[in-house]
């Protein structure tokens, strides 16, 4: 079986200003199979988020090879990257990133706005997902009326809306207390058991313990697994 993600010698260099550039990722080799639960750990500034963004096609490697679901990502057009994100990836961010003026339901429906083929009954599906995380009664609330944990659960629902293979969570519990954090991690675990591939970035070993595999990054290199 082909891996879901395959990175070979991926490097990422950011240009800062005219002639200054920093190499943040210095040759990443990574293979992620379908159904894995991976935690990425490392110190601040080690390149975890950068790697996450590359996996999620929010950005493209400077060099190397990256296959996502069998497709070569390097050299794709911006529109193609958007489509890959739309269909294969669900993002969860540390600071939730919900649209403040939209309702919970509208936030969850957001990915469907940009889907090529719109399946019918999107609202019913959104309601089902919200029910899964226990927020079916909050559908018409605005995010500012929800607690942090509730907001993150809405963000998780949004990530699930287009039924992607991969959930990418960049420090999803960074703004939550430990009890709420474990609720979120349990949800991610459940999703993984149902077949979703989950990748979580974290500083916290307890969080990492939910994962089946832990990757450590230091200075842009994967140091051990």
């Amino acid at each position: 079986m082909n891996p879901l993600c395959l990175m070979e010698n991926v490097k990422k260099t950011f240009r800062i200003g005219e002639d200054l550039s920093v190499e943040v990722l210095k040759g990443i080799d990574l293979k992620v199979d379908e159904g894995e639960f991976i935690a990425i750990m490392g110190t601040s500034g080690s390149g975890k988020s950068t790697l996450m963004n590359l996996i999620g096609c929010l950005d493209v490697p400077t060099s190397g090879r990256y296959l996502l679901a069998g497709r070569e990502v390097l050299g794709l057009l911006d529109d193609d990257l958007s489509e890959l994100r739309n269909t294969h990836i669900g993002f969860v961010f540390q600071s939730f990133y919900l649209l403040p003026y939209a309702t919970v339901l509208e936030n969850v429906l957001l990915p469907t706005l940009y889907r090529e083929k719109t399946a019918g009954h999107v609202e019913r599906r959104a309601a089902e997902i919200l029910k899964l995380v226990g927020l079916e009664k909050r559908m018409n609330f605005r995010p500012n009326r929800l607690s942090g944990g509730e907001q993150q659960r809405v963000a998780l629902c949004r990530a699930l809306m287009n039924d992607p293979e991969i959930i990418l969570a960049d420090e999803p519990t960074g703004q939550l207390d430990s009890k709420t954090a474990s609720e979120i991690m349990n949800l991610l675990s459940d999703l993984n058991k149902k077949g979703k591939t989950v990748i979580v970035v974290t500083h916290d070993a307890t969080i990492a313990s939910y994962a089946g595999r832990v990757i450590h990054i230091k200075d842009g290199i994967i140091i051990d697994e």
């Binding site: 489509e83 957001l110 990915p111 940009y114 949004r158």
Partner: peptide, 16 residues
């Protein structure tokens, strides 16, 4: 910008 970022991350194209 954050809103633009979220929309892009869930698959919005430039023209969207």
């Amino acid at each position: 910008t954050a809103e633009i970022g979220i929309r892009r991350s869930v698959g919005a194209k430039k023209r969207d």
